[in-house]
Design a protein around this nucleic acid. Structure first.
Ligand code: SF4
Ligand code: SF4
Lengths: 148, 148
DNA sequence: TTCAAACCCGACCGATTCGGTCCGGTTTGC
DNA sequence: GCAAACCGGACCGAATCGGTCGGGTTTGAA
């Protein structure tokens, strides 16, 4: 039960963009260096964020990525779902899989509730709020500490 | 972001036990048949539940599995964590992985909050409560319906 | 005392996902 | 027209998922 590295990197990448102020454009290479994320991997992640409409890409020399919306209107939920795909909690919650029961089973209600709560919680946090308490990742990345 | 089939099967298996009344013992083969779960796979899952202390195993002829506690004192959270391992949400929340930051990053607080809420939600549901609204799985298992 | 029933442990299996990497193509500014 | 930058997708090794299997141990009963 974990989110992926990719979605974590996605958040850090967008926070980096957000810190540059409104309308700023940055190359994936530079963001990757500052956030200590493999640039080729971050590029793949940013393409997913672009497809989801969270970020706008500018091609060609002098290009890069820009936040499509002000950071106070991009939520943590949107970012992780754009990268990892929708949060289902149960395999059968994926419409492409489908439920195998005639009538609802005991699991349906509690997990649907848990899913709703989880998504609401992540939706409450915006990039603007997260950016306020966060410096670039590479600067903080030194040795392991035993938090949580 | 999903729980595994294994934990789902674990819940169904325990519900089957719970429905048999206090102290009842059942063989994994029979439970597997009734719940439409591959018996060898269910056996593996029940061993994990036994190691977690949720279920007691009786070996030898006439043996089987019994609920270790009354179903109103076994929570959904306990079952899924016994089978799938602890819910971490972030890879770095796993103590065996460890956090790579000197100080907390922006992600720590929101995901810790989400994790707490998710676990509390699952902990609110007991086997007794789930069993009350649920017949054996195989009986209900017919064709796909498009419920969430 | 022997036999079969039942759980126990761990190896193995094919398919999928994860975390990346790479390469050839396209768009753009200079 | 050239270099900078994104784009799409193929590919990669490692890990996880969803099972399966075989052999070992414990036990009750004939
Ligand atoms: S009824 Fe059960 S199997 Fe069907 S979607 Fe709900 S949780 Fe999944
Ligand atoms: S500070 Fe960041 S990396 Fe460290 S445990 Fe918290 S979320 Fe994970």
């Amino acid at each position: 039960m974990q989110f992926t590295r990719a979605s974590e990197y996605g958040v850090f990448g967008l926070l980096n963009l957000a810190r540059r102020g409104p309308g700023a454009t940055a190359m994936v290479e530079e963001v990757g260096r500052q956030e200590a994320i493999p640039p080729d991997f971050l590029a793949k992640i940013f393409r997913a964020l672009a497809r989801a409409g969270l970020v706008r890409s500018v091609r060609g020399a002098g290009g890069g990525f820009t936040l499509q919306r002000p950071p106070e209107r991009i939520t943590l939920l949107e970012v992780v779902e754009a990268v990892d795909g929708p949060i289902h909690l149960q395999p059968c919650f994926d419409p492409s899989a489908g439920c195998a029961f005639e009538a609802g089973c005991a699991l349906c209600e509690p997990f649907a509730e848990a899913r709703r709560l989880l998504r609401e919680t992540l939706a409450r946090h915006t990039l603007a709020e997260l950016a306020r308490r966060q410096s670039p990742r590479a600067a903080r990345l030194t040795a392991a500490h035993a938090a949580r």
